[in-house]
Simulated assay, not measured.
Amino acid sequence: MNSSLHHLSWDLIGIFVAVAETGSLSAAAKQLNQSQPTIGRQVKAIEAELGVSLFYRHQRGLGLTEDGEALLPHAKAMHAAAAQFLLHAEERKQSGFAGSVRVTASQVISNYVMPKLIAEFRQAYPEIQIDLVPSDDAQNLLFQEADIAVRMFTPTQLDIVAKKIGETPLGLFASKAFLERVGMPMTREDLFALDWIGYDRSDLILRGMQEAGLEVDRDFFSVRCDDRVTYWELVRAGCGVGLGQIGIGVEDDSLVRLELEDPLPALPVWLASPHTLKQIPRIKLLFDFLAEKLPKLL
């Protein structure tokens, strides 16, 4: 065996797995919070270390070579083993409540819901520090990117403890200033004649409206933005009608909820945490606190 393989970095193995799973250097760089050139150099480093080519380029990014396909299952197993090693080490190291807990939630939940809950929790447990990670990307709990995740979809990772804590209904909202300017819509036709706010590159809202039988396209939206917090601020500023979580919208005195004949679908709300980490007292404490308090604010 090549003696240099004894010094093969665990980080390089993780980068190989990330690039293989995402299919591009840019996506892997975003997932790992590194620059694309850095990921590119590290891919070259692991190929040089192993003496084989792992990827080939195609129009959509990077694909696995035959050698890459053969090595990927072993790299995943090594990466998972390293993650489990770190998780168990953390579990052995920590006892009691003192320490930090890393929580990830969507941009909207992080901005408009979590601050109230963190303030209440910290009043009761000042010895526990909270790291809040606002993100609409699915953080990898297994590899300690977060200790607890608030998900708006069913978690599918293995070795994850997941608990559905409720649903958050969606509604249509517009600012009072906007409605004073254009008038309150009295019919469905009036409502769809107003300015609407949609997403830009994401087709989530557009697809949902089309599936509901509404004949709309991208040009139906007068203003478009993919960032969820900025989107909500556009609604609050009076740029048009927008979609939002009812629990957040009704708490805002500057907004008016606009009723449709048919209710909009609700989003499921899940809490998730790695199985081993959830046994750490401070993580279990915050997990149970969020399971009790979060549904009341959604």
Rank of each mutant, 00 (worst) to 15 (best):
V161P: 04
D190Y: 05
D288M: 07
L214T: 02
L141Y: 06
P115A: 06
G208I: 01
S100K: 15
R282N: 06
F287Y: 01
D137V: 13
L267M: 15
F55D: 06
T276W: 07
L71I: 09
D131Q: 14
I280W: 08
Q94L: 13
K176W: 12
V103L: 09
G63I: 11
W10M: 15
L285I: 07
P265E: 06
L204W: 10
D131G: 12
G247K: 07
D147M: 09
A149E: 04
G14A: 11
V223I: 11
S24D: 09
S254I: 10
D159F: 11
L286Q: 02
K76R: 15
A20S: 13
A237W: 03
S106M: 06
A212E: 03
A177P: 02
T22A: 08
S53L: 10
R224G: 00
R201P: 08
L117D: 03
E69L: 15
E215M: 11
R257M: 14
L206K: 02
L62V: 07
L191G: 00
W270V: 07
D288V: 10
S175C: 09
I39C: 04
A291F: 02
S100M: 15
D227C: 09
T38M: 12
G63A: 13
G249T: 01
S4H: 12
A80I: 11
S222K: 10
F153A: 14
L277K: 04
L277M: 11
L277T: 07
L194Y: 09
T38V: 15
I109M: 11
K30I: 14
E180W: 12
I197N: 01
A98P: 09
K76A: 10
Q144I: 05
G61M: 10
L255N: 03
L62I: 09
Q139W: 08
F16K: 09
A177V: 14
T187M: 00
L255K: 03
S254C: 12
Y231W: 00
L25E: 06
D136N: 14
Q139H: 12
Y56G: 06
R201K: 15
S53C: 11
Q59D: 12
R282F: 02
A149D: 06
F221N: 00
G40D: 07
L206S: 02
